Amino acid sequence: MKAILPLACLSLLALPLAACGGKGDDKLAERVEDAADNRADSLEAMADNLQERAERTRDVGEQRADAIDAADVNAQSMSPERKADIVANEAAAVR
């Protein structure tokens, strides 16, 4: 029911606009809508690409963490700088 109310309001607002015509504004309005759709499609594609990149980043981080665990690295003997360097190199490797 809640979804129907906004749709009905939009229909009522669009009705007077639909009655107008003959001034060529329909084609202009269609072009504006098409351009907005194209921009939205582009943004969605970029979002999909970012999602895939985020998943790859997580996978690579997990694989590298597993490799460090498997190598049985003695992290207690490392300096804080060395640990930070390993983490920074991990972040750079994923990009």
Score class of each variant (00 low, 15 high):
73 V>K: 02
18 A>S: 09
11 S>Y: 11
28 L>W: 08
35 A>V: 09
36 A>Q: 13
75 A>Y: 12
54 A>L: 05
45 A>S: 12
6 P>H: 07
25 D>S: 04
32 V>S: 04
61 G>F: 01
93 A>N: 14
42 S>H: 11
52 E>Y: 08
66 D>F: 01
1 M>Q: 06
20 C>H: 03
6 P>A: 08
8 A>K: 13
7 L>I: 10
68 I>H: 04
53 R>Y: 14
51 Q>H: 12
90 E>R: 10
41 D>L: 07
16 P>Q: 12
1 M>E: 01
56 R>K: 15
17 L>R: 04
3 A>F: 14
12 L>A: 11
75 A>P: 08
37 D>G: 03
8 A>M: 09
85 D>W: 00
54 A>P: 03
1 M>S: 05
85 D>H: 00
23 K>S: 09
8 A>T: 14
76 Q>M: 08
17 L>E: 00
77 S>M: 11
35 A>Q: 13
5 L>I: 14
61 G>D: 01
36 A>K: 12
19 A>N: 00
46 M>L: 13
16 P>D: 07
35 A>C: 07
46 M>W: 09
18 A>M: 08
37 D>R: 15
70 A>Q: 12
20 C>Q: 09
42 S>P: 00
65 A>L: 01
38 N>P: 00
83 K>W: 00
50 L>P: 01
47 A>R: 10
14 A>I: 12
75 A>G: 08
7 L>W: 04
87 V>I: 14
25 D>R: 13
22 G>D: 06
67 A>I: 01
10 L>Y: 09
60 V>G: 01
31 R>H: 06
59 D>V: 03
16 P>V: 11
65 A>T: 02
14 A>W: 05
40 A>S: 09
83 K>C: 03
94 V>L: 06
24 G>V: 08
10 L>S: 14
37 D>Y: 12
95 R>I: 14
49 N>P: 00
61 G>A: 02
4 I>F: 05
7 L>P: 03
54 A>Y: 06
11 S>V: 11
29 A>R: 06
8 A>N: 00
13 L>T: 05
42 S>R: 03
79 S>Y: 06
9 C>F: 12
76 Q>Y: 14
82 R>S: 11
27 K>L: 07
28 L>N: 07
93 A>L: 10
81 E>Y: 12
69 D>G: 08
40 A>F: 11
89 N>C: 07
84 A>L: 11
82 R>N: 13
3 A>I: 13
51 Q>Y: 15
15 L>T: 15
17 L>Y: 10
1 M>D: 05
27 K>R: 13
52 E>G: 03
78 M>A: 05
29 A>F: 02
70 A>L: 07
38 N>H: 08
81 E>C: 00
23 K>W: 07
45 A>M: 07
91 A>V: 13
58 R>Q: 04
78 M>S: 11
21 G>T: 00
5 L>F: 03
93 A>D: 12
6 P>Y: 07
59 D>A: 05
31 R>T: 01
34 D>F: 14
70 A>D: 09
55 E>Q: 05
24 G>T: 08
61 G>Y: 01
60 V>E: 04
66 D>V: 02
48 D>P: 00
50 L>M: 08
7 L>Q: 15
48 D>M: 02
6 P>V: 04
93 A>K: 10
30 E>C: 03
24 G>M: 09
41 D>R: 13
82 R>M: 15
58 R>T: 04
19 A>R: 06
74 N>C: 05
78 M>G: 02
36 A>R: 13
